[in-house]
Amino acid sequence: MSAPDAWRLLRQATQARVGLGRAGDALPTAEILRLDAAHALARDAVHSPLDVDTLAAHLQEASGLDVVRVASEAADRAEYLQRPDLGRRLAEDTELDAGPDGWDLAVVVADGLSARAVQSHAAGLLAALLPRLAGWAVAPPVVATQARVALGDDVGARLGAAMVLVLVGERPGMSAPDSLGAYLTWGPRAGLVDSERNCVSNIRPPHGLSYDHAAEVLAALLTESRRRGLSGVELKDTGAALG
């Protein structure tokens, strides 16, 4: 086996950056630039603001529902990154009214740590999911900025929803700057802990989960959650949904 063949085999075996070559005791210029580019995309994903108008239009198209906009208590990105507690609370002047009959499901689209993920994938996922929830009373989707997953608890409670689904931009990695996560929580209220949620992560076609695959898993989880009146570790443990 020649040297190039050996490196090719190693590279095929992993996404890890093996066999990058050397410039003395450092990496070659081309590899440094590749690493810089990957870091730049991840940084931009964290810091680029969500284009709320465009997202709202896409969500409206995908759901046929009006879209509501809210913000967390974190004033800007710097505060959001340093104060996760503020990103979990709705801004003081937020007005959200419960529907007359309550809702089966509230959907919150939160920028999280990657606005790019939300911008790219939230509407597509919703368009794949809603037809699988025939007969459900789904509240108008809520777009939340400077928001973390737990902000959905407050939104769901104020809307009077039985459960909440939060679509959120996940922490970007060097190889995945646009990964969307979906967290479902039964009985949203303040003070829930993460073990009371279920999560489907890495929704980012074509590299990660497709919209249809993620929607299939989520619809099964949501249905089972509603049937049993719970979410979290116990729901996951049944194994019925995630197969």
Binding site: T14, A16, R17, L20, D25, E31, L35, G173
Partner: peptide
């Protein structure tokens, strides 16, 4: 140290093998 300083499992950046070769020299 991880290959290229990019940990593809934990999604964070540590040092690359070459970083240590350089500082040792």
């Amino acid at each position: 140290c991880v290959p290229g300083g990019d940990d593809v499992m934990l999604a964070y950046q540590s040092l690359s093998f070459t970083d240590v070769l350089g500082v040792r020299q």
